[in-house]
Design a protein around this nucleic acid. Sequence first.
DNA 1: TAAAGTAGGTACGGAAAAGTAACTACCCTT
DNA 2: AAGGGTAGTTACTTTTCCGTACCTACTTTA
Lengths: 116, 116
Amino acid sequence: MPKTPPQCPMDSILRLLMGPWTTYIIWVLSDQGPQRFGALKRAVPGISTRMLTERLRMLQSAGVIWREQAETIPPAVTYGLTPRGNDLRGVLDTLGHIAERWKDEGVFADDELGTV
Amino acid sequence: MPKTPPQCPMDSILRLLMGPWTTYIIWVLSDQGPQRFGALKRAVPGISTRMLTERLRMLQSAGVIWREQAETIPPAVTYGLTPRGNDLRGVLDTLGHIAERWKDEGVFADDELGTV
DNA sequence: TAAAGTAGGTACGGAAAAGTAACTACCCTT
DNA sequence: AAGGGTAGTTACTTTTCCGTACCTACTTTA
């Protein structure tokens, strides 16, 4: 993203969440609790390993998620929302209600749903 | 973004809002009301004309924003939130409060703010 | 036995997305 | 006259992301 000085807190949080898959990952962790890397990857259909890795690093760096690495073979790394990340729960809940309303309104492409 | 079948309404809305600048644009329209293209571009620091154009087309297509073109030279096009787009107001308000809290916690890079 | 599977990554070449600069045609201001 | 404004569009360049292959050390399957 472009390097511009933040204008206000809202600008900063929007830029933080703006990157691809960011909100989606947060939602999965919020909805399903702490997840291993592979489970997280499966819960976010379409995300690539490299994107998941990078997003998780960013979110961890921002203090939104925690990362716990077990000393095992094969490696087992678990990710979860920090208390700070939990701040976003309400937002995601509201978004979920809106999503259901929008679905009823036919906002999301019906043709793909129709074929499922 | 990848072409995967939506899993649920939340998946769909997250994908809709996932694209770069999307939420930012919606917030500006929510916060400041209907805007002309140029004003919108100035209100979203760092966005390019091509990205703003593309995002606006997408949001219009999704029924989140409206577009009103005046028959003038030079062209004057105004964009605003539809009633559906207004659904997101509460979410953005909440996000704003969280942003202020996170700012106090030092989540956003302080060094840039310090030099402003 | 060899191959496949498990986990969470990393490296690489290519495709896709985004950035950048120039341009449009008209009107208004300096 | 030059410059600024309007909302884009286009062509080229740069950056980002994807898909694939690979890594480790162990277990399971054919």
